[in-house]
Design a protein around this nucleic acid. Structure first.
Length: 301
DNA sequence: AACGGTCACAACCGCAAGCAC
DNA sequence: CGTGCTTGCGGTTGTGACCGT
C-alpha cells in the first residue's frame, strides 16, 4: 500500500519535474558523463529514470541508459571493426537479420548500435553500389560467396603475417575521428583497445581500392584461390545491374585477386548444414568454416 | 580557401514486451 | 484485468569530420 503511495508520489514528482526541468537533449557533455559514471559506480545501473533524477542529470532515463550502454561502459571496445568481426557480423546477420542486439552479444565490447551503424554505412553502401537490395538473394549470395571467403583469406593472411612478425606492437590503434581532440574520450579508448584483442587492426582499416567485379554469371561457377569453389548458385538470372566497378574498400580488398593461396580448403562438398535447428538455406558456412569461426572467436552458437 | 557531398557515429524516437501494482 | 512504468530493440536523424572539386 505504501508502495502504491510512493509510486503515485514519484509519478507526481516525475511529471512536475519533467515540466520544470526542460530536459536536455543532444550531445552529452564531459560533466554529464562524469555524473553518470560516478553515480553508476556507486549505485549500479538500472532504474534509469530514477537514476537520471538522483544523479542530477537533466536527461531522460532512456538517454542515460543509451549513453551508458553505447559509450561509457568500461568494456566498450573502440576502434575499427576488425576482419574477424566483419566476418562474424556478415554471418550472424545472414542468420538473424537485423537482430542487432543478438548479434552484438557475440561481439564482445561491441554495441548493437555500433554494429547497426556498421551495417548501414558499409554493407548497405555496397549493396547500393551493386544496385541491388540488401535483402535480395543476389546481394546475400555476393556476401556468401565473395565477401566472406575473401574475409577468411585476409584473416588467414593477417594471422600468418602476424606469426612471422616479431613486433607485435605494429597493431595500430585507430581512434574514432570524433575522439580526436577529446582528451577524456581518448583516455577511455586506449585501455580497452590493445594489440591482443585486435590483432588484425592494421588490415581492418579502410584500404581504399577499386575492384573489377566480374559479371555475376561468373559467380555461379568460380574457384577462389583458397579453394573455395562456388558452383551451387541456383539462380541463372543472377546478375549485377549497371556498373561493374565496385568499391569494396574496407570489406575486403583485392576482392577478385586470384593470386597466391592461403591453403584453405573450402570445397563445395563441404558445404553442409552448419548449425542445429537452422534453416538450411540460411547456413552460409561449411564445417571447416565453422571451425575457423570457432577458433577465431571461441564462438559458441 | 570555399563549398558541397559523403561518411561515421552518437543520439533520439516509437513501439512492444515484461513487470509490479 | 487494467494501468503505468521500465527496459530493450530497431529504425531514423542530426552533426561533425573528412574529402574531392
Amino acid at each position: 500500500m505504501e508502495d502504491v503511495k510512493a509510486r503515485g508520489c514519484i509519478r507526481k514528482i516525475q511529471s512536475s519535474e519533467e515540466d520544470q526541468l526542460d530536459l536536455i537533449r543532444g550531445p552529452w557533455t564531459v560533466e554529464e558523463d562524469f555524473k553518470l559514471i560516478n553515480y553508476i559506480a556507486v549505485h549500479g545501473e538500472g532504474r534509469w529514470n530514477s537514476l537520471a533524477r538522483c544523479a542530477g542529470l537533466k536527461r531522460t532515463g532512456k538517454s542515460c541508459r543509451l549513453r551508458w550502454l553505447n559509450y561509457l561502459r568500461p568494456d566498450i571496445r573502440r576502434g575499427n571493426i576488425t576482419l574477424e568481426e566483419q566476418l562474424l557480423i556478415l554471418e550472424l546477420h545472414s542468420r538473424w537479420g537485423n537482430r542487432w542486439s543478438k548479434i552484438a552479444q557475440h561481439l564482445p565490447g561491441r554495441t548493437d548500435n555500433e554494429i547497426k551503424n556498421y551495417w548501414r554505412t558499409r554493407v548497405q553502401k555496397h549493396a547500393k553500389q551493386l544496385k541491388c537490395d540488401v535483402n535480395s538473394k543476389q546481394f546475400k549470395d555476393t556476401v556468401r560467396y565473395l565477401w566472406m571467403p575473401r574475409l577468411v583469406e585476409r584473416i588467414q593472411a593477417a594471422s600468418a603475417s602476424a606469426t612471422t612478425a616479431t613486433d607485435t606492437g605494429t597493431a595500430q590503434m585507430s581512434l574514432r575521428r570524433d575522439v580526436i581532440g577529446n582528451e577524456y574520450a581518448a583516455q577511455q579508448v586506449t585501455p580497452s583497445y590493445t594489440p591482443e584483442n585486435s590483432s588484425t587492426a592494421t588490415v581492418a582499416s579502410s584500404d581504399s581500392f577499386e575492384t573489377q567485379v566480374s559479371p555475376v554469371s561468373d559467380l555461379t561457377n568460380c574457384t577462389y584461390n583458397n579453394g573455395f569453389h562456388v558452383s551451387n548458385n541456383s539462380n541463372p538470372d543472377y546478375g549485377f545491374q549497371g556498373s561493374s566497378q565496385v568499391d569494396y574498400s574496407d570489406l575486403s580488398d583485392n576482392y577478385y585477386d586470384h593470386r597466391g593461396g592461403i591453403g584453405m580448403d573450402y570445397q563445395t562438398s563441404n558445404y553442409q548444414p552448419l548449425l542445429d535447428g537452422c534453416d538450411l538455406s540460411d547456413n552460409l558456412l561449411s564445417a571447416d568454416y565453422f571451425l575457423f569461426l570457432q577458433q577465431q572467436f571461441n564462438f559458441n552458437m
